[in-house]
């Protein structure tokens, strides 16, 4: 079980980084017809790559071992009171996977030359991260039920 404020801090940092990505991505969108190297060396592309890798780290190693989780425990947690309750790490971990899929899709599309793919993907991820950080909205909790509904078998053992 984890302190629920930890993933929210992480979501806040992620949301801020995604906003910078969007700003850079729109302002410096590569000209049509530019080469692959030009596109992937754009600051927005590089920043989104870093964010995407952090999502992958959270999804595979778990949010507790994510750098922001370590940051929370080292710097923030000692200054706060104990949490009201603890939370299962699976929803935020699932949300990290969703974040990775969305940002990775944007990176692939941008590498293929689709204009504004980086800011669009960053925008989608920003909405989820910002809602989580500011309002405590957990997109993983809702998507999980949708997945359950789509699953063909009636019940699992």
């Amino acid at each position: 079980m984890i302190d629920p404020r930890s993933p929210r801090l992480g979501a806040g940092i992620t949301a801020a980084l995604l906003l910078i990505t969007i700003l850079l991505g729109i302002a410096l969108d590569p000209a049509p017809g530019s080469g692959l190297l030009d596109r992937v060396l754009q600051p927005a592309f590089l920043l989104l790559t870093a964010i995407s890798l952090l999502f992958l780290r959270g999804a595979t190693a778990g949010v507790a071992r994510h750098p922001y989780g370590l940051l929370f425990r080292a710097l923030v947690r000692p200054r706060l009171g104990p949490p009201k309750e603890l939370e299962d790490p699976r929803p935020p971990t699932f949300a990290q996977l969703v974040g990775f899929v969305v940002t990775a899709a944007g990176l692939v599309a941008a590498a293929l030359g689709i204009p504004y793919a980086v800011p669009v993907a960053a925008g989608a991820a920003f909405v989820a991260a910002f809602l989580n950080a500011v309002f405590g909205y957990c997109i993983g909790c809702q998507l999980y039920l949708l997945l359950v509904r789509l699953r063909p078998t009636g019940r699992a053992a």
Partner: peptide, 17 residues
């Protein structure tokens, strides 16, 4: 333009929240 988009996105997301 980029700044306007960013401000609009933050505003719209806050409204949804």
């Amino acid at each position: 333009i980029a700044s306007v988009v960013v401000v609009a996105l933050v505003g719209a997301t806050t409204a949804v929240g």
